[in-house]
Amino acid sequence: MIEVRNLSKHYGSHRAVNNISFTVNEGEIVGFLGPNGAGKTTTLRIVTCYMPATSGSVTIAGHDVLTESMQVRAVVGYLPESVPLYPEMRVREYLQFRGRLHGMDRANRAAAIDRVVERCWLRDVIDRPIGQLSKGYRQRVGLADSLLHNPKVLVLDEPTIGLDPAQIRATRSLIRELAQEHTVILSSHILPEVEATCQRLIIIHEGRLVASGTPDELRQRMTTESNLIAELKGPESDIGASVRKLAGVADVRTTLQDGWTRVSVAAQRDLREDIFRLAIEKHWPLRELRRDIATLEDFFVKVVTGTREQHDGRDEAAAER
């Protein structure tokens, strides 16, 4: 449904988006994750025809954003990050106006407004000026606007930013509902946000795509390099040496704590059984044995800080030359 190929965007000499490619299939709900300044808004603005890319292409439902911009706009509903609205207009007036822009006649508009007002729980405020509404309501007006023309694709830029926890939960469940009828791409800089709502994550950092996959896949990738913690009583060097001999061990660190040896093992596979057998064999008492289940948060942090180190390394190398 959305095809992004080798997309780059430069603001002057600053590369906000650097050669990003991804696809979003029909009916999918995809989370676009990255820290602030990663280039999420820039990418989404290109996807929604707000501005052209420096290079690369985007097609939505088979239409190119540059050459068939109007067709793209007709099938895309967009909620910009800042939720821009006209404070002096009433909710109904605003939705009427937006309906007209989408070429709906009076009857269609009435039906569409009815539908989105129901969907986004705006019934109570429909005749209030937008300027008087709370942040949560304004967010819903923006969402209602993006749903008005029943778009195939919904693009939501940080849809829950600035909302309180109850509103966040309500918005999340609304987005999940919407995902049943629309293809959704939503951005966030908060991992639990997208983990809770999205089937697939695309993680970008400093304008580059650094990882993508389902939350489970990403978690899997993380746990394959998981950490194992064990505390045994015995000679520290013996314990270290024996653990190192186990198959699939990458790195072992030992520390002595009130007579117990604490072993931290980075391994490719689950070593808990091996450690248990080792302890029995050597008659080392065992008081703790656990595997650190990596969270996606760890993964996110690792990916984001990891690329930064890589970058620094590259920059230094470049400087040396």
Partner: peptide, 13 residues
């Protein structure tokens, strides 16, 4: 106000 963004992403020239 940033409304140019919602205007120019609607089918408006």
């Amino acid at each position: 106000s940033g409304t140019i963004e919602s205007l120019m992403t609607a089918p408006v020239s």
